[in-house]
């Protein structure tokens, strides 16, 4: 299989690392060659964070090139706009309908663009906007927003659902397993274009 690339962007502390772990563990279990690159250290202090995932028969680079990601999974709108240049023209943008203003905006020095979703919709053919926080709240744990988004992604990529449910059972602490699985399943239901 030709190599596929998933670019995840978000804000430090949003659970992108766990999302990456669930996705890649499932892909490895499915028998693919997989590489993932993540950023640790300083950037995690509320900074912009990215995780890059590539899988297929044989993967060399852990980094995705601009204009070549099959999916951009953005945990926050500004971080969607920031990294959308990585998306391939045929690719799908999944964006969390969430605004987390960075420091410069909080103190009124810069403005948070008001029209991100509309602007992106004008340019991108395949786009799914998800209120992952709202859905996660309904599932009973706001922090499960990451699994909602993973659910959407799994459906978009046509990955087998069971493989993911199994992995969530393995990697999430026992008392959060059910919440995370229902968050994943709610996401799965929304993952249709």
């Amino acid at each position: 299989m030709a190599v596929k690339s998933i670019f995840i962007s978000g804000v430090g502390g949003q659970g992108t690392i766990l999302a990456g772990k669930v996705i890649t563990t499932a892909l490895v279990n499915l028998g693919y060659d997989v590489k993932m690159s993540e950023v640790h250290g300083m950037a995690q202090r509320g900074g912009s964070v990215i995780t890059q995932i590539r899988y297929g028969d044989r993967v060399y680079s852990p980094l995705i090139e601009k204009g070549r990601a099959d999916v951009l999974l953005a945990f926050e709108k500004l971080e969607a706009a920031r990294y959308v240049e990585y998306l391939s023209p045929e690719g799908t943008l999944i964006v969390n309908d969430l605004e987390m203003p960075p420091a410069s905006v909080l103190v009124g020095k810069e403005e948070y663009p008001a029209d991100i979703v509309e602007r992106l919709k004008e340019e991108i053919r395949n786009m799914i906007v998800v209120d992952a926080v709202g859905v996660a709240k309904e599932c009973g744990e706001i922090r499960a927003q990451n699994m909602v988004l993973v659910g959407v992604l799994a459906r978009v990529m046509d990955w087998p659902k069971d493989a993911f449910v199994e992995v969530i059972r393995d990697v999430v602490p026992a008392k959060y397993v059910d919440v995370n699985i229902s968050a994943f399943e709610r996401g799965w239901d929304m993952g249709m274009l």
């Binding site: 804000v11 430090g12 300083m42 950037a43 995690q44 202090r45 509320g46 900074g47 912009s48 601009k66 204009g67 500004l78 971080e79 706009a81 920031r82 959308v84 240049e85 990585y86 998306l87 203003p101 960075p102 420091a103 410069s104 905006v105 810069e110 403005e111 948070y112 663009p113 602007r119 992106l120 004008e122 340019e123 991108i124």
Partner: peptide, 13 residues
Amino acid sequence: TFKPYAQLPSRPP
């Protein structure tokens, strides 16, 4: 590639 905004508020740590 899509580049809808020339400049965006940065998000340093």
